[in-house]
Design a binder for these strands. Structure first.
Length: 603
RNA sequence: GGUCCGGUAGUUCAAUUUGGUUAGAGCACCUGCCUGUCACGCAGGAAGUUGCGAGUUCGAGUCUCGUCCGGACCGCCA
């Protein structure tokens, strides 16, 4: 009885009864469907009105099909079609027909056929859009983000999100098949002191107290190991309230994994296999395993970074020994202060304009160096820049060690260890980009291992965890934690692809005493450790298995898989570099009532 | 928090080194014509608070300052 009434009331409103429902998509019809009567639904991509005959390219996410309105087929429908404009949403019913020989469009997947329309339903008209819905459009990103739902109609962007969806599926299948259990962890959690700035969520029940959104589910996944889940994974949103970059958003997605009874090699193998699986299924590329490994120290001294781009050479060379007897005061004083002199050889760089070289000098200052020395190697001679300060013996050794070739430009930074290598590393990247030395087809993976566990923070005047405070030191170095903490190596590893860090993880501490020792090294007091991480410390006392894990930055991985310049292109609704959502205007002010309820006063 | 680049019609851009008549063009849009186009074609038309606010000047799209927005970078991002 009620059902019948409901039908009577709602049926006309929903429009279901009269709606022309599609029998096919706009991407699937071909000459094998000849003569069939079909219904298509979609958006008007393009209208070509010839007066006598109207062609409409009908688009949905599967493709484009040309539909034809001809007064000889149906005069009424033809008249109706005159009102169609771009982005109208319509349904058409008609017969699939082979196009005349000379009207076949080989560029279209459906280019051999067209639909002779006998029935047209306009589901919804559309205002003229603020930009055209087509790939390769050059339009302000501000406008694209404001009308993100229109931007997302573009096939190029749709395909990126479809690839993203495919990646989720591959990852879930692969990990599930390998006994990983997918478990959701809380989004409202306890604020943690270490690391990035937290996003806070006020608690209504407990005025003055706050939840934090997770920077990662780190502690939860360790607790799941204590619980005995043995292999856990989650595709999960993480939140960090820090400034944005083209590859950084305040909310981003990780493939989070953790395993029990494992060492570094086990996690690295598992993560490598997952990566290879994703690449073979999405890119149809077979990535040979295992990926090479590089020690952090080597990466730092040869590439000036912990995420080296191995798609091109141009390694940094340390020159301390060559200049140990130098008369050049700049170098001499750096060496006396235990600093480092290192060089980057830019092939054909001697041909760069003076003005370009000046900008390199400026750039290195911006990056923190006191200066940038350089010379050119031309006609087997050292020329320009600091050439006149280099002795013959030094020239001989430089020529050999740097394997100098005609028209090389040699860039030298002499500064502290913390400055010299990163500055050259950054110049290396920027020059490779500019001189087009990067192999765009290549996928160069490398595991970076043997990271330092701690690094000294000038700002906080204490050691801080390089990875996070739950990372295990190498067992044989535990005693060094007291005497020389900066020399302790972590059981941590990062997966780097084409100069982008796509995953990072570590073997964790599963022993309460060691965890305590580490907090001590970090100058976290017993009381603070207890109040901030007491729950984890306690858990470690109840039979915590040895465990470790890793997390992939899914967005960055997808940037590479889809060839995107910006992380915004692989996220459906991203924020701008000032963390605004232009479409819905978040963040926004809230009512006085809401604030009162939370006992929050804004000043 | 800082540095740099940008903001002109719906949109992409122009507007003459050094401020000067009515701020132009392509695409899109609107109207008319056109029966085989697929970047359709032809003819015509409409369309602007030059991001916003001050200042300098006889006069500002143009110069100065502030501010907002977008982007890239530095700091930041365990």
């Amino acid at each position: 009885m009620y059902i019948i009434i409901a039908l009577l009331i709602f049926a006309p409103i929903s429009g279901e009864i009269s709606m022309l429902k599609r029998t096919h998509t706009c991407g699937e019809l071909n000459k094998s469907h000849k003569g069939k009567t079909v219904v298509l639904n979609g958006w008007v991509n393009k209208r070509r009105d010839h007066g006598g005959v109207i062609f409409i390219d009908l688009r949905d996410r599967y493709g484009i099909t040309q539909v034809v309105f001809n007064p000889e087929i149906n005069k009424f429908v033809y008249e109706q079609a005159k009102s169609l404009r771009s982005e109208f949403v319509i349904g058409v019913k008609g017969q699939v027909a082979l196009r005349p020989e000379d009207a076949i469009n080989p560029q279209m997947a459906t280019g051999e056929i067209e639909i002779y329309v006998s029935e047209l339903e306009i589901f919804n008209p559309a205002k003229t859009t603020p930009f055209e819905i087509e790939d390769n459009l050059e339009v302000n990103e501000e406008l694209r983000l404001t009308y993100r739902y229109l931007d997302l109609r573009r096939p190029k962007l749709q395909n990126k999100l479809i690839t993203r969806s495919k990646a989720y599926r591959i990852i879930r299948n692969h990990l599930s098949e390998n006994d990983f259990v997918e478990i959701e962890t809380p989004v409202l959690m306890k604020s943690t002191p270490e690391g990035a700035r937290d996003f806070l969520v006020p608690s209504r029940n407990y005025p003055g107290r706050f939840y934090a959104l997770p920077q990662s589910p780190q502690t939860y996944k360790q607790l799941l190991m204590v619980a005995g889940f043995d292999r856990y994974f989650q595709i999960v949103k993480c939140f960090r309230d820090e400034d944005l970059r083209k590859d950084r958003q305040p909310e981003f997605t990780q493939i989070d994994m953790e395993m029990s009874f494992v060492n570094e090699d086990d996690v690295i193998d598992t993560a490598s296999q997952l990566t290879a699986k994703v690449f073979s299924e999405i890119m149809d590329i077979n990535i040979p395993l295992p990926f090479p490994r590089m020690k952090y120290k080597d990466a730092y001294e040869q590439y000036g970074t912990d995420k080296p781009d191995l798609r091109f050479e141009m390694k940094i060379t340390q020159l301390n020994s060559i200049f140990e007897n130098t008369e050049f005061n700049v170098f001499k004083s750096v060496l006396e202060a235990q600093g480092n002199i290192a060089a980057l050889v830019v092939p054909q760089g001697a041909l760069l304009k003076r003005n370009r070289i000046d900008r390199l000098v400026e750039r290195s200052k911006e990056l923190g160096a006191k200066g940038l020395a350089y010379f050119k190697y031309q006609n087997k001679e050292f020329a320009a820049g600091i050439a006149k300060f280099i002795s013959d013996e030094e020239k001989k050794q430089l020529t050999e060690q740097l394997a100098l070739k005609e028209d090389d430009l040699i860039l030298i930074v002499a500064d502290t260890y913390q400055i010299t290598f990163p500055v050259l590393g950054q110049l290396r990247l920027e020059l490779a980009e500019e001189l087009e030395l990067i192999d765009r087809e290549a996928y160069r993976f490398v595991w970076i291992v043997d990271f330092p566990l701690l690094e000294f923070s000038e700002e906080e005047n204490r050691y801080v965890a390089r990875h996070h405070p739950f990372t295990s030191p190498k067992p044989e170095q535990i005693d060094l934690l007291d005497s020389e903490p900066e020399n302790v190596t972590a059981r941590a590893y990062d997966l780097v692809l084409n100069g982008s860090e796509i995953a990072g993880g570590s073997i964790r501490i599963h022993n309460r005493e060691l965890q305590k020792k580490l907090f001590k090294a970090l100058k976290i007091s017993d009381e603070e450790a207890e109040s901030k991480f007491g729950f984890l410390m306690k858990a470690l006392e109840y039979g915590a298995p040895p465990h470790g894990g890793i997390a992939f930055g899914l967005d960055r991985l997808l940037m590479i898989l889809t060839g995107s310049e910006s992380i915004r292109d692989v996220i459906a609704f991203p924020k701008t570099t000032s963390a605004l959502s232009l479409m819905d205007n978040a963040p926004s002010e809230v009512s006085e009532e809401q604030l009162n309820e939370l006992r929050i006063r804004v000043f």
